[in-house]
């Protein structure tokens, strides 16, 4: 290998890694896992209450190495994309009507922000809750837009630690894409995902 090639292959590449997907799929849990593994820092708050992430959260300068590829990642955790937001969904979790309304308003703004930010993402992780039916239109809408913008992405069926998860069904539904099933909570499958991120990142720019 010539020294120029060698330099090039070892140069740290800056990559904006965006976390997309439905509400509560585990985007923040995964962003935190990656942040902790590579930078000993979390990105945001995780909650069982939908729309916990209502603003884009970033963690910069995450030094990541996999398959000999050095990356300088910016983790960009997005609000979950939804086609509707109903304050009633939060009242169930004990929020007051005023708090629920405030959360709902912030959630709608967050969704717009997440959509607008797509163009700044270099590689996207589309996190899918593997315990749910994978035919939610939102997943296809996100994937269709990533394809239209030529953004490399990985479909990440999450929560495979749960007994009612079905990663195979998600794999079937998205059979001609890169798919990496994981448990963001327990770490299962995470190294395969890291290798996949590295190989997609190599092709960026």
């Amino acid at each position: 290998m010539s020294w120029k090639l060698w330099l090039k292959s070892n140069k740290t590449k800056k990559i904006n890694l965006g976390f997309y997907g439905e509400v509560n799929a585990g985007k923040t849990t995964l962003a935190n896992k990656i942040g902790m593994d590579w930078a000993s820092q979390e990105v945001g708050e995780v909650s069982e209450i939908p729309h916990e992430t209502r603003e884009i959260q970033k963690l910069e300068k995450v030094k990541f190495v996999a398959e000999g590829t050095n990356l300088d990642l910016t983790l960009i955790d997005m609000p979950g994309v939804a086609t509707s937001v109903n304050p009633k969904d939060f009242i169930k979790f004990g929020l007051s009507p005023a708090e629920a309304l405030q959360r709902a308003k912030e959630a709608t703004r967050g969704i717009v922000e997440a959509i607008k930010y797509l163009e700044n993402v270099d590689v996207a992780l589309v996190v899918v809750d593997a315990t749910k039916h994978p035919f939610d239109q939102v997943n296809f809408t996100i994937i269709g837009n990533l394809e239209a913008q030529n953004k490399p992405f990985i479909i990440v069926p999450n929560k495979v630690d749960l007994p009612d998860s079905n990663a195979e069904l998600v794999k079937d539904a998205f059979s001609n894409y890169h798919v990496a099933p994981i448990s963001a909570l327990q770490g299962e499958g995470i190294y395969d995902l890291y290798n996949m991120i590295a190989s997609l990142a190599r092709k960026v720019r």
Binding site: N86, L101, K105, I111, I142
Partner: peptide, 29 residues
């Protein structure tokens, strides 16, 4: 709808939600 149109529809929907008589849409192809 194209994926871009679907995304645009979601974005516009978020701006029209008033939490009274409109809480958003269901979109299925």
């Amino acid at each position: 709808l194209t994926p871009e149109e679907e995304m645009g529809l979601i974005e516009k929907t978020m701006k029209h939600i008033n939490f009274k008589d409109f809480n958003g849409i269901r979109l299925v192809s």
